[in-house]
Write a protein that binds this DNA or RNA. Structure first.
Lengths: 209, 209, 209, 209
DNA sequence: GATGAATGAGACTTCATTCAT
DNA sequence: GATGAATGAAGTCTCATTCAT
């Protein structure tokens, strides 16, 4: 019977959520503490400081992503097209299942180069993502072109997440993931308004209230 | 005849640069003032506060982009494929000609939904971009599909800019723009490792030092 | 008509007094601010931080001592024995005219080697003191021996000030200064209980309440 | 047979060392605990609080000094001049055998009058020292003058220790002890540059690097 | 219009202390 | 007896903002 998640993890969870939705600078240590039932000072039992919390949160995302998302690309028992589909589905679920916000992208843009500890982690995360995609694609496209396609797919997904912050419309992310799957499966298509369909889009770019 | 830059404009310029490269919260009013030779208190002659400065900076970006970038998509004297190429080139130049950082994306992620004044402007910016792209694409793809393609292209470009923050590699943005052009010009291609070429990429994902 | 002392000086004054009587770590910036009618944050208009305040306070003591105390040793119009007497009298007045506490000694012992900025200033202060004494003594004792005697006199005076912190008895400091004067003036003597006098000291070491 | 050091003694040892070298306020309970292999909370099994630790440390210094240093002045089997020499040697060894720092002087200056518990102990320490010196000197100088000379000697020694904190030069302390011995032994002299000797002092006041 | 002193809220952080386990 | 989580007060410092000059 596993004991309840350690408090350290609770702090990371709370911080992750807050950093993602409100930004790093806009989140205070007191808020993080309050979010997991602690007082400001208590957080410093587990972490050396705010940066340390953020670093742990980034590490958590990296580890989680490796295990639950990027790892899907490496299963040798599954044919590559299905592996790609699994990966893309996981990515879509991961980013769409929230009101928006990508910790990696957020921190990358917010702190820029001012905190090298963060940049290295963000880089590692995108490297992992790229490696996962490349592994699935290189059989068909060769290593070089597969790498490019991986980068392109990541960019499009990240950009979709960013746009979702404003539009609250998950369709862009969905299409990005569908098109990625299509790289190995021609039957897949992202086009909602595909030839002949031309469904009505009374409001082409859905705005949130 | 270029009118003399007012002090107000100078503040906006400085703020724009600082917000983009260092983030909104990470930039102090004193720094903005110092960057244009003023003292902190003087800034408040021109602006009601920090948010007001940022709003003005966003408005500046919106106006500039309309005039210098998105406007290129509406020139009736130029055939659509060329208009699209002009637009894509301008976008690439705009984002690649710096060490990185996109004010719109940055603010969208950093302040999230906490400052509605910002969100509305970010939204307007992306709307402008989408409208420009859609206008060029709808002749070929129809309004609905053109809108989707526009959103996809914007997402990919924004994501490329975000990745550039980390990788410092402009290639992803370049391919994003080339592929956008290819939507109307089949001769255009982004693939460096295109069929038959398969150049070696000893370092598939270039990292900055 | 010189304007009133600048506020920066007021902060230094207040800090000097507080650091001396309560110690560096035991004095908060808020206390310093309150002591000169400011609020905590206002002090940071003049100083970069607490260390900066202390450094300025040390500089003030160094400058004041040079001008009002150690400078007395260099007046060529006064014969050395009288110069030495003037110097010793000034030292005695300077340290006795308070309830105790020597900023230099205090900081030297309290922060030890942890703040090099402080140590350098303390060193400079004692160097000034030694140079002043040596200048007066070297005519009679030669440079080498004069230097030693200067160091010894400084040590004794400093020690007396330290003891005064506990005993509140200025007699030890007075004798230290008298004996220093006696180095050039045999008529001077510090001994209260000198031969023939032998006054009664019912309580040899006076304790403060 | 030396009894086994209790944990309580270990805490006192560690505290003594830390308070002396880093100051009272600059030393945290956690550091004291860590220095003797305990955790912060465990210290409170032995002491009521930080002040209590410091009080015990001062008591330890008082007891140690009585036994190992000041006690040397009271041995009736040794003639006074030799007793004085023994005492002075012990003082010199005690203070010179470290990189500097005198707990008594440090606490006296650092906490000033704010903690009466400390002041009383510092006073007792100096009283012990004075009593020891007076006992040796009064046969020759009479009680009153002996008390003065004792105070003067203590002041000079304490001042020398304080200077050593800055200069790292033990010579001042050595001369202070030699001159004290000379009070009963005319053959003793502290003067390095004494008549006929006149050794070179290329650097009259040695500074630490 | 410009200044710079002053503010006061709030940020991050430290730390002596308590206490349930 | 020992632990280590939790506390809460206090400390240093930042910064958007105001305002008299």
């Amino acid at each position: 019977m596993p004991t309840r998640k350690t408090d350290r993890d609770a702090v990371i969870d709370a911080a992750l959520e807050l950093f993602r939705t409100r930004g790093y600078h806009h989140t205070s240590v007191a808020e993080i503490a309050a979010a997991c039932g602690l007082l400001k000072g208590s957080v410093y039992h587990y972490f050396a400081g705010k940066q340390d919390i953020a670093a742990a949160a980034l590490d958590r995302v990296i580890a989680d992503s490796r295990q639950k998302i990027f790892g899907l690309a490496g299963d040798p028992a599954v044919p590559p097209p299905q592996r790609l589909r699994n990966l893309a589905d996981a990515v879509e679920r991961y980013f769409a299942g929230r009101d928006g916000g990508c910790l990696m992208g957020s921190l990358a843009l917010e702190v820029g180069d001012s905190i090298p500890e963060f940049r290295a982690r963000v880089q590692r995360y995108f490297d992992d993502w790229k490696a996962a995609l490349t592994a699935v694609l290189e059989g068909r496209y060769g290593a070089a072109r597969a790498g490019e396609l991986a980068e392109d797919a990541i960019a499009r997904a990240q950009g979709a997440v960013l746009l979702m912050e404003v539009t609250k419309d998950p369709a862009v992310l969905r299409r990005a993931c569908r098109d990625t799957v299509a790289l190995l499966d021609p039957n897949e298509t992202s086009a909602a308004g595909s030839p002949g369909a031309a469904r009505e889009h009374p409001e082409p770019w859905k705005h949130a209230s």
